[in-house]
Amino acid sequence: MPDLDNCQFSNGTHHYDFSGLYNTTQYSRASGRNTYYFNICAPSQLCQMKAGNSDSVVCQQSGSTFYNLGLSKTGQWSALSNGKEGAQVHYSDGAPCSRAIRNTVIQLECGTGPTTILSVSEVEACSYEITMSSSLACPQ
């Protein structure tokens, strides 16, 4: 089990511990012609092997090529911009892309049901957004 100490966020009112969302391998979601693999608070097993970086927390498979979309060690937590309960983590230092470096924001929304991937998208060139809902993303 990895060190999940950097898997918590406090916004002054609520405290969140997202370590329960850690997956022993990774989450995956197809979107368009690509498949995205990611983990919460620790590298993705498949991304480590295929995207060429042992700290890769998010990667994109396009055909037979894998691109690193962010490193676990760069994770920066902040409140959700939509005002919902939960938090988001921004991962940077992904693979080069056009004139930028790939990066990803994973939004973890407090929900009443099981952990669900709501959406995965490239919100602008080289910037990706993953939104999840889970009871494990609620304040403690």
Rank of each mutant, 00 (worst) to 15 (best):
Q48A: 12
T25H: 09
A42T: 13
F38S: 06
G52M: 15
L69M: 15
V57L: 08
A51N: 02
V89S: 01
R33N: 12
S28T: 13
Q88C: 00
Q88S: 00
F66C: 05
Q88F: 00
T35K: 14
L46S: 09
L69I: 08
S64Q: 14
K84W: 00
N82F: 00
Q61I: 12
I40Y: 00
S64A: 15
M49Y: 10
Y37T: 10
T25Q: 15
R33Q: 15
W77E: 01
T65F: 12
Q48W: 09
Q61L: 15
L71G: 11
T24C: 07
G32C: 07
H90E: 08
Q88G: 00
K50S: 15
T24Y: 13
P43H: 07
N82W: 01
N68Y: 07
M49E: 13
S54P: 07
K50A: 12
R33T: 10
K84S: 10
D93P: 01
Y67L: 13
S81P: 03
A30G: 12
G86S: 10
S81C: 02
A30E: 11
G52K: 13
P43Q: 09
F38W: 15
L46D: 10
L46G: 03
I40T: 03
K84I: 00
R29K: 14
Q61T: 06
Q61R: 15
Y37M: 10
A87H: 05
E85I: 01
G86Y: 00
V57N: 09
N68M: 12
A87W: 07
G75R: 10
A79H: 03
I40Q: 01
C47Y: 01
G52R: 14
E85A: 10
V89W: 01
Q48M: 15
D55Y: 14
S28F: 08
N39T: 02
G32P: 04
N39K: 05
N39L: 04
T74G: 05
Q26Y: 15
T35N: 07
V57F: 04
S72I: 06
S78V: 03
N34Y: 04
Y91R: 02
G52P: 15
T35Q: 10
G70E: 01
Y91I: 06
Q61V: 09
N53G: 08
